[in-house]
Write a protein that binds this DNA or RNA. Structure first.
Lengths: 239, 239
DNA sequence: GAAGAGTCTGACCATATGGTCAAGTTTTGT
DNA sequence: ACAAAACTTGACCATATGGTCAGACTCTTC
């Protein structure tokens, strides 16, 4: 081991620290709104240090994005020709919901990037993502051809799946406001996931999903409306 | 007529020009990324003029947002206790899709605002929107109680409806990239709308939608573009 | 233990950007 | 017709922000 190992660890630790802070700041402020000074503060390092590890703000931003894209692609793993459509789709939905719950900042950074025309990852969208969707769409068309599910346009199915699951991360503030929650809880994601599963499976002519991890949740108990404190709702302005 | 009329027209024309340009710029750059100089250029007016009509960048931004919120609220008009659930939901979806196609910039500005924590319209979300959703949710719960549709959590139904329809405006770049289109066409929105209708109606235990305007269109081609002019909701702010 | 590469940091710039202002031009009121 | 109000505009600031740099500190190697 020795030198390289240790040195890489030191550098890597710093870089990870920075990337984490950057993801948080980019998520809440967007690329243009994020300040290097704020990222520096959030990571507990002096600003000049950021510029040592990442030449420019744009480089740092790209690094954050690259960290995110992998997960994006991985989520479709279970969509394979021999999978059971019902289980595969339900699994995909659950995975996406877990992702929205555990990595909301990543989702937001991604959303922000696309919302503003994907200036950085336009290439990724047109190449890797497009290819992935083409492949997975072929799988779904195979299922349809074999009569395993109703005919739906697979690509649009992905669009609305992404939209529904990611909205729980990206538009979290709106959902919180409407539900009157201080924070979204497991129950909220649970309720969302159940509805999405229902819409997708029934919409695809499938039966309501074979529970795959040994029966964890009772099929009822969505969530009670405005049970929690009536939220104060004045517009804070900051910007 | 005379004085007031003419004066208001001059000012209003300038303000409308500015608001239009601002919506475009805010949509593609976000609040922080938008430059007053760019908005000025896009509206064909000198920068100082913007500051005459809207004191600050934030005021201008709020004015753009206010212009948008009205439409948001109006879209649920047809969801009434005595409506046919199937027609009402299908109509809502179509209206939202038309909105995504005809006013994508408005949708993007709204999305951006929420994505970044709704610093300006947090109040709107917690008050007007929350109340509206509560009311419309009650309507849906009424339908459910009367056995007109399957039991689904109405609030989450709205969340995913918004997500699915607005994704065609907000994430347009991604959809274009995956579909390999230079621009999204009527066909694409058509395909999306059909899928969303299918998922929602079947998911709610409803039959695939009674066409509502008297047999105007063969079962394909439901959408008509800007049916009524999307009215400018007033509420100019200046401050 | 000294050389040297790698890592860290405070102090310092250049510039871009939101905002101002005073002097013009048009429109309105009488 | 003429003054006052409403509107327009080029030139001008103050400041915030991304980025730089020279020197300090730390670790590895011989």
């Amino acid at each position: 081991m020795g030198r390289t190992e240790v040195r890489r660890n030191r550098t890597d630790r710093a870089r990870a620290r920075i990337l984490g802070a950057a993801e948080r700041v980019f998520a809440t402020a967007g690329y243009a709104g994020a300040r290097m000074a704020e990222i520096a503060a959030a990571s507990g390092l002096p600003k000049a240090n950021l510029h040592y590890h990442f030449k420019t703000k744009e480089c740092l931003y790209r690094a954050v994005l690259d960290d995110i894209l992998g997960m994006w692609l991985a989520a479709t793993d279970q969509i394979l020709p021999d999978s059971d459509p019902s289980a595969a789709l339900a699994g995909y939905i659950r995975r996406k919901m877990v992702y929205s719950r555990t990595r909301p900042d990543a989702s937001k950074v991604f959303a922000n990037e696309i919302l503003h025309g994907a200036p950085q990852i336009g290439g990724f969208l047109g190449a890797e993502l497009r290819a992935l969707v083409a492949a997975k769409s072929a799988v779904i068309e195979g299922w349809i051809a074999r009569g395993l599910m109703a005919p739906v346009e697979p690509r649009h199915l992905f669009f609305v799946l992404w939209a529904m699951t990611q909205t729980y991360a990206d538009f979290e503030v709106q959902i919180r406001a409407v539900l009157g929650r201080r924070r979204l809880g497991a129950q909220d994601f649970q309720a969302g996931a159940m509805l999405i599963e229902r819409l997708v499976l029934l919409g695809c002519g499938l039966s309501p999903a074979p529970e795959q991890p040994p029966g964890r949740t009772p099929p009822a108990a969505p969530d009670r409306p405005g049970s929690t404190t009536p939220r104060r709702a004045s517009a804070r302005s900051r910007r």
